[in-house]
Simulated assay, not measured.
Amino acid sequence: MNGHRIILASQSPRRKQLLEWAEVPFEVMVQSTDESYPPEMPVPEVPVHIAREKAIAIRQKFESLHDANNIIIAADTVVVLGNTIIGKPKDREDALDILSRLSGNKHQVITGVVLLKGRQEIAFADITDVWFHPLTKEQIAFYVDKYQPYDKAGAYAIQEWIGVVGIKCISGDFYNVMGLPVSRVVTELKKME
């Protein structure tokens, strides 16, 4: 991206893969951050808030990143059923419960993205609607036991078995459900050149 050093502030293998597919040169830097948010914060603002905290933590940790030639990309994805944010499952029972609630229903996947370059910030949230077919208890248990989706918001990954057999349709960016609306990220990166 024209001499810019791009830093992905995420350990997510899916976000890394998506940027690689888009042929964006980048390096990964991570810093643990507090992922809490004010309880009164509107749901679509939550992943942007968390992404901003991740980006700021990286910039604070590495003084060299204050340089205007560096762009930090941070993202956070939440799954929302009704008006309730569903995080990563705590254990097997929680994963089974989450997928049982998503079964046969529509939910939203919201990814908040923050790009930082010097004092410039671009922040946005991308929303994809996802409808699951009704799933049997056996299907849900098979998926949880085989794929162990404990590091995934909503207890599933769209690119795995459950996405192939369980998702009826989506409205919005498929890659947003994987964790990064990569085409929009590339578009916003060009604005920062």
Rank of each mutant, 00 (worst) to 15 (best):
P39T: 10
V79R: 01
P44F: 07
I85C: 00
S64C: 11
P39I: 03
A55D: 06
T77I: 05
N70T: 15
R59E: 14
P42K: 13
K90R: 15
L65R: 08
V46E: 06
K61A: 15
A75Q: 08
I72W: 12
P47N: 02
F62V: 13
P47G: 01
R52I: 01
K54L: 02
G87M: 00
V78G: 00
I86G: 01
V48F: 02
E40V: 12
I85F: 01
I50E: 04
I50F: 03
A74I: 12
F62G: 10
K90D: 09
I73V: 13
P44V: 06
E53S: 14
V48S: 06
P44N: 06
V80W: 01
L81E: 03
A75I: 07
A57D: 11
V79D: 01
R59A: 09
D76V: 02
V78F: 03
L81A: 05
D76E: 10
K90M: 06
Y37F: 15
A68W: 10
G87Q: 02
N70R: 12
V48W: 02
T84N: 13
L65P: 06
V78E: 05
F62T: 13
K90Y: 04
I58G: 09
G82M: 01
K90S: 12
I85L: 01
P89V: 00
V43R: 10
K54G: 13
P42W: 08
D67R: 13
P44M: 08
G82S: 03
L65V: 14
R52H: 15
R52A: 09
N70L: 07
P42M: 06
I72A: 12
P42H: 10
L81M: 03
N69E: 12
I86P: 05
V43Y: 05
I85Y: 00
N83A: 11
F62S: 10
T77Y: 04
P89W: 02
T84V: 14
R59C: 02
Y37S: 05
P38Y: 12
K88T: 03
H49W: 15
D91H: 08
P42E: 15
E63V: 12
A51N: 07
P47V: 00
Q60C: 10
V78A: 01
H66W: 14
D76H: 07
G82L: 03
V80I: 09
P47R: 02
P89N: 03
V46D: 07
I86F: 14
V78T: 08
H66D: 13
K88V: 03
V79L: 05
H66Y: 13
I50G: 05
